[in-house]
Simulated assay, not measured.
Amino acid sequence: MMKVEDTPEAWDVVDSKHRFKGYVIEVVTDSVKMPRDEVADRDYVVHPGAVAVLALDEHDRVLMIRQYRHPTRHLMWELPAGIRDVAGEPLVTTAARELAEEAGYRAGTWYTLLDLRSSPGMTDERVRVFLARDLSRIPEEENGFEHRHEEIDMPVEWVPLADAVEKALMGMIHNSSTVAGILAAYAASVEGHALLRPADAPEA
């Protein structure tokens, strides 16, 4: 029986064309050497990666925010999240900043909940989802973050974890890291979160 675990492997790239470079993403076409010496072009988005935070309070409620996502033309309920935009910054520090900026909370306890490849057929984006516990509200005068663009008037709601699972399974929420985080948190709660990795666990 084969070991069921993703493993690093890089097939030879015989040519690479850079199609587009924006503020966050880049689009590339690689000509990749396939088995039997065939070569095939693969388009993909180069992305710096992201973090997301499943903040769970003492009543097992998930902190969720609603944000406009223009590509989908939807207001979407999501976990606080953000791009890995500070070189060399520990991912848990990035996550703590996003939780503070987007939702106004800090956490005393952090775990790695899961690592995702958001859409491995079209992007190299990696998302680490953290579980944050022991939450406390940050006084408004201490936060000092100015919301702009999609983040203006972004509501925050506390949703019971079991209800969040139901909403995911019923197709009422769709953000991939949010759905994965909710289901992972629910599964991890069965073992009292004992199987979760530490917040600074290495990425594969």
Rank of each mutant, 00 (worst) to 15 (best):
L99V: 05
V45C: 09
L79M: 06
M154C: 13
R61Q: 11
M172A: 12
T123G: 02
K21N: 10
T93A: 15
V46T: 11
E146G: 09
E102P: 11
V28T: 07
T7I: 15
L75Q: 13
D30Y: 03
V86C: 14
G171I: 07
R61G: 00
H47R: 14
M154R: 06
V127R: 00
W158K: 06
T93V: 15
V62Q: 01
L113Y: 00
K167S: 11
R106S: 08
V13Y: 03
K3Q: 15
L135A: 03
M34D: 09
M34G: 10
K17A: 01
M76W: 01
A162N: 02
A188I: 01
A55P: 05
D12F: 09
M2K: 15
A185R: 00
V127K: 00
L54N: 02
I138Y: 12
A10G: 09
V27C: 10
P198Q: 06
E150Q: 12
V62C: 03
R19T: 06
G108K: 07
H47D: 14
A107Q: 01
M122C: 11
R128I: 12
A185V: 00
R84W: 15
S119T: 12
T72L: 09
E125S: 08
H59G: 08
T94S: 15
D57M: 06
I25D: 04
D60I: 04
E9N: 15
P90I: 06
I182S: 00
H74Y: 10
R128A: 02
A184S: 03
A201V: 05
